[in-house]
Design a protein around this nucleic acid. Structure first.
Length: 962
RNA sequence: GCCGAAGUGGCGGAAUGGCAGACGCGACGGACUCAAAAUCCGUUGGGGUAACACCCGUGUGGGUUCAAGUCCCACCUUCGGUACCA
């Protein structure tokens, strides 16, 4: 009976914690330091919990339990990101209301998560689909709608740094003379409606955000996506581009994530330049005055990061959708242009990627004037220029841009070198006739100036300006870094250019043509003008529908709720819904005050709990969720609704857990083995490399006893010449390698699952699953149990060797060291080594005839954060009546961490030649004397000249001798 | 292509510039058992030796250092992100 039996222990303690409200967190506790530790809340899918979820959840749970023992007031909540497409698709298929499936999925997730014994304060559970929650999602949307961004507003942040740019109430927007104030305000709001080309997915019956489209197909379901113009809600996240980048400096996040966010925002500096269009052979007169805010009529405005190459701009390209195309196109080119534009419009992103290899385009017949050379240059349209980036038009400098080069080559457009590459570059790229190329640097440069197109590569780096002069201005000789500001200033003086900043980041497409999402709290009149709904009318409830099927057009499903839509005679409701991101943008704020019906959160509580001290989740949210969330938070900050500029102080990404390692061999139709290096993985399956017929190979799964390591890779044991693939794959239903946490809990218990996931390796690393590994930690927990409990007795009693005896000196040292090391490991999120330490402790004590009870208690407390059920049970068996959750973390005597004597290596010329035992505080002379006194070392040093002796006291001694 | 992370036994992994491989899995040997499971004890990087000695070894090639898995340079491979962003 008294064997380790998690199936008995775990429900018992989960019941205890629930009954005693052990982990309910007081809203405010000025007496203790606070700690807000957050998990990314899950989307409760029908598939249930995945072993990836408990990885991060266990890590944060350990930190929470550890910190409670250290005296912190810890906030650790959980909730559900429950709006979203899968529930809606399921509703369509089965005609079940998404609320019903969502409820069932939430219940299942809650059951699974509770079965793992996490110390969440369940009284703070939130659900984004709860009207009591989305009321405030709508409320925040109205705040965003009520805000404009003042790029010139100066303020100081908490660190006292001067900052520029802030979101302000729309009422404070200065209205220029002579404009319609309502329309002007609407044009400046952070939430606005715009007609934009959107990604319409007919199969899903919805519009997708750019981020939800992968290779021209929907991220969910892999359905084709086409572009079409629609009026949509947009959030002006681009206004916050600089702030979102700058404040990455003040958060404690992994560098890789900060880099990803920075790249996603994609800030670049350059210049805007106006190119006048030749109309009827004449350029429009150059306007006097400064660079106009919007380009004059018959002027093509371009954005470039390399204004220093302006002398090399030999043609221009407009995006096919560019408004000037019609104006510029000559009658002869009209048909060709129209045809190209139509093709481009019909192209999905997928087609565009497919065709990315060769540049296409059509000449418009029109010309524009290069503002520095005065030369007329042809204007083309091509879909390699995107309407949504920059100004939708480029000046093409084929000599110094890969894309322009390729295009110019295809269409025979002149290529003019205006930046001098370094001599080595010229030499290295002087092909195709490299042998005949002049070796002399001056001759090489002359060749480059004459025809850069003859060189093997495009020089797109910085260099020195050449062939860049006109009657009034000389750039030649200037390095790129100087040439850029010089020419920008010259252009600005003449009112034809100015310094400019651009972002890859686009405004956030914030509406969806779906049912299962938050309704927008706004009304539209017969002219589509927007009126926000009053705060007292929130929430705008999602109307019940019996029919969730897409309308088959971009018309959202909510259009079917006729009564709901018709708000009044004058107004109808907005029928788009918000995207899934909306609810997850601010859930961390609701946790601090989840039941408040008066406001989204109490400002006092917000000041106490924010920012989140530790946020753990998957790297798949590295960009979107975290960027959107930070954006909302900054708007709330600017509006005085939150007190910190950033929501998440420290971020850690847990690594993905892969399936078990698989050994795969390949066989052709004739049954012959095909070595893995000759196999290529095509879309439909494995084929022989270079096999034009594309005949699929048979994949053969092998057990680990059928394979053997040979050289760099694995081979079949019985056919050692056949290399095979040995690799762990992402868990997926189709591959059949998904591990269900329920199965692991049933078989080994939650403590084993928790401990195994922590023992696998560093939290951030990608790691393959291994059931054998779970058995390993399960055995360890069994040993820990038997270290304390008499497993031969009938009843659950202490092992007779557990007594009140004092620890031996060696035991005392081990105890102190384990306390110190495990505490450090928990602090630094190094759970894998913490487990190792506890294993060493158990290994030492199971061999001991005397097991001091105090040592067993200390061990139990150290184990508790990782394996709380077993720890609580042992704690009770050791004679304690209540939970150990708030027991103080064990103390230790630092003196015990030091040894009196240490064994140190003796090296000769850096090679290990012996070991000596020396007093821990032995000085250099003493150590050297002891080392020289060692018979073996003395013999080895015999006849050699000792040139130098390196002694690191307490560490090592190294004789440099020959 | 660009950005990022990582390459250490058969496997997961450990190692403030100072004894590479802690801990676990697997394997092998032993104890207990009629037997097996469970449990316990021992061995386990490669070569070499009767046993020592000794030699080799952290993706590859260089470098810095008394000393490099760790720092620097170049390259290779794998994984993740991103991609006509002017």
């Amino acid at each position: 009976m008294p064997a380790y039996h998690p199936q008995r222990i775990e429900p018992k303690w989960q019941g205890y914690w629930e009954q005693h409200q052990t982990f309910a967190t007081p809203d405010l506790d000025r007496g203790r330091p606070k700690l807000y530790i957050l998990d990314m809340f899950p989307y409760p899918s029908g598939a249930g919990l995945h072993v990836g979820h408990p990885e991060g959840y266990t890590a944060t749970d350990i930190v929470c339990r550890f910190k409670r023992m250290k005296g912190f007031n810890v906030l650790h909540p959980m909730g559900w990101d429950a709006f979203g497409l899968p529930a809606e698709q399921y509703a369509v298929q089965t005609n079940t209301h998404p609320r019903i499936t969502t409820q069932a999925n939430v219940d299942n997730f809650r059951r699974q998560i509770k079965s793992l014994g996490f110390s969440y304060d369940w009284s703070r559970e939130v659900d984004t689909t709860d009207p009591g929650y989305y009321k405030w999602t709508q409320w925040i949307f109205l705040k965003i709608h009520d805000t404009w961004y003042d790029p010139d507003f100066e303020w100081a942040d908490a660190q006292g740094r001067a900052r520029r740019g802030k979101g302000r109430p729309i009422a404070e927007l200065p209205i220029p003379e002579g404009v319609d104030p309502v329309a002007y305000r609407d044009s400046k709001r952070l939430a606005y409606r715009a007609e934009v080309p959107v990604n319409w997915c007919p199969a899903l019956g919805t519009v997708l955000a750019n981020e939800e489209v992968v290779d021209g197909k929907s991220e969910r379901g892999n359905h084709p996506v086409v572009r079409m113009p629609l009026t949509q809600w947009m959030l002006r996240i681009t206004a916050y581009g600089d702030r979102l980048v700058e404040d990455l400096e003040i958060v404690d996040w992994p560098k890789s994530i900060r880099d990803m966010q920075r790249n996603w925002v994609g800030r670049s500096e350059g210049a805007e330049v106006d190119f006048p269009v030749l109309v009827g052979g004449e350029a429009p007169p150059r306007p006097s005055g400064p660079f106009p805010a919007t380009p004059a009529e018959d002027v093509i405005r371009v954005y470039t990061t390399r204004p220093d190459t302006l002398f090399g701009a030999t043609y221009m390209v407009l995006a096919p959708e560019h408004p000037l195309v019609d104006r510029i196109t000559t009658p002869e080119q009209k048909d060709a242009v129209a045809k190209y534009r139509e093709q481009a419009a019909r192209k999905s992103d997928l087609d565009r990627t497919d065709l990315a290899k060769t540049k296409t385009g059509v000449f418009t017949g029109g010309h524009a004037v290069n503002p520095v050379t005065g030369e007329p240059i042809p204007v083309w349209i091509a879909d390699y220029v995107l309407i949504s980036y920059g100004t939708g038009a480029i000046m093409a400098v084929p000599a110094h841009d890969d894309r322009d080069f390729e295009f110019a080559k295809t269409f025979g457009i002149p290529i003019r070198a205006v930046v001098e590459p370094p001599a080595e570059w010229l030499r290295a790229n002087a092909s195709p006739t490299r042998e005949e190329a002049p070796a002399d640097p001056a001759a090489l440069l002359a060749a480059y100036k004459a025809d850069p197109g003859a060189f093997a590569a495009v020089f797109h780096d910085e260099g020195v300006a050449i062939q860049s002069r006109n009657d009034a201005f000389v750039l030649d000789g200037k390095p790129t870094a100087e040439a850029k500001p010089a020419i920008t200033a010259w252009l600005a003086e003449r009112g034809v250019g100015k310094k400019a900043v651009n972002y890859k980041l686009r405004d956030w497409l914030f509406s969806r043509q779906r049912y299962w999402g938050e309704p927008f709290p706004v009304l539209l009149d017969d002219q589509d003008r927007v009126t926000p709904i009053g705060e007292d009318e929130l929430p705008v409830l999602l109307p019940d529908l019996d029919d969730f099927k897409p309308t088959g057009t971009p018309e959202p499903p909510l259009s079917k709720a006729k009564e709901w839509v018709n708000y009044s005679e004058a107004y109808r409701r907005e029928i788009n819904t918000m995207p899934q991101w909306a609810g997850s943008c601010w859930y961390y704020l609701r946790y601090i005050d989840p039941k408040n019906t008066e406001r989204p959160w109490d400002p006092e509580k917000e000041k106490y709990w924010l920012p989140v001290d530790l946020y753990v989740g998957g790297a798949e949210h590295a960009v979107l969720h975290l960027l959107y969330s930070r954006f909302w938070h900054k708007v709330l900050f600017d509006r005085g609704l939150v007190s910190t500029p950033e929501p998440f102080q420290r971020l850690v990404n847990q690594g993905m857990i892969l399936g078990e390692t698989e050994y795969t061999a390949y066989r052709d139709a004739a049954g012959a083995w095909v070595p893995a290096p000759s196999v290529e993985h095509a879309d439909k399956g494995p084929i022989r490399k270079g096999d034009a017929t594309g005949a699929l190979l048979e994949t053969v799964k092998l057990d680990d006893d059928q394979v053997v390591k040979k050289g760099e890779g694995f081979v079949i044991k019985d056919a050692p010449e056949v290399r095979i693939d040995a690799r762990a794959h992402k868990m997926s239903k189709s591959r059949g390698n998904v591990i269900n946490p329920d199965v692991v809990v049933n078989e080994y218990g939650a403590d084993s699952l928790r401990l195994y996931e922590m023992f696998m390796g560093p939290l951030e690393a990608v790691k393959p699953w291994s059931m054998k590994g779970v058995e390993g930690v399960y055995r360890f927990l069994g040993r820990a149990w038997r270290m304390v409990v008499d497993y031969e007795a009938e009843e659950v009693v202490l092992d007779p060797r557990v007594t009140d005896a004092p620890p031996t000196p060696d035991q005392a040292k081990l105890i102190a060291r384990t306390v110190a090391a495990v505490g450090d490991d928990y602090e630094a999120l190094r759970f894998n080594t913490a487990v190792s330490r506890l294993m060493e402790f158990v290994n030492a004590f199971t061999g001991a005839e005397v097991r001091p009870k105090a040592a067993m208690e200390t061990f139990t407390l150290l184990l508790a954060p990782m394996a709380p059920h077993l720890a609580e049970e042992l704690w009770q068996i050791l004679g304690h009546e209540s939970t150990l959750a708030y027991e103080p973390w064990p103390a230790f005597d630092p003196a015990l961490l030091k040894d009196d004597e240490v064994e140190i290596p003796v090296q000769i010329l850096g090679k290990l030649r012996g070991k000596i035992t020396v007093p821990a505080d032995a000085d250099q002379q003493a150590i050297e004397a002891l080392a020289r006194g060692d018979a073996r070392i003395a013999a080895l040093l015999e006849g050699k000249t000792v040139r130098k002796v390196i002694v690191v006291p307490g560490k090592l001694i190294n004789f440099v001798a020959n």
